[in-house]
């Protein structure tokens, strides 16, 4: 994962077609306190390992997707549409090349 991204809508596409926004954190409720908002906007888990991130298929279907990947090995862990309308693609479901 870093050369090809498995878009849940378009399949494997070159990484150049995508942009990324970092951690797939969920926006707090409007009534959340300021600490929660500061957390959301500024603090990050930043793990060395599996990480869920927002990616945008900017030069493709224009959908925002959540990509799970390992930040150390770049191993692919699955993708889904950010709005949850496309089924999760997990690496185990990948079929043979033929």
């Amino acid at each position: 994962m870093a050369s090809l991204i498995d878009c849940p809508h378009c399949g494997k596409r070159p990484r150049e077609e995508f942009t990324t926004l970092g951690s797939a954190v969920t926006r707090p409720s409007p009534s959340a306190d300021s600490e929660t908002w500061t957390d959301y906007v500024y603090l990050r888990d930043n793990p060395r390992g599996m990480h869920d991130e927002f990616w945008h298929h900017a030069d493709g279907c224009r959908r925002w997707i959540v990509v799970s990947r390992n930040t150390f090995t770049h191993e692919f862990g699955g993708t889904r549409d950010a709005a949850g309308i496309a089924p999760m693609i997990s690496p185990t479901e990948k079929t043979s090349q033929k």
């Binding site: 990484r15 990324t20 970092g22 930043n46 990480h51 991130e53 930040t71 150390f72 090995t73 770049h74």
Partner: peptide
């Protein structure tokens, strides 16, 4: 552009 601890690029 993406989070990485890999010390290698694309």
């Amino acid at each position: 552009m993406y989070n990485s601890y890999a010390q290698r690029g694309n």
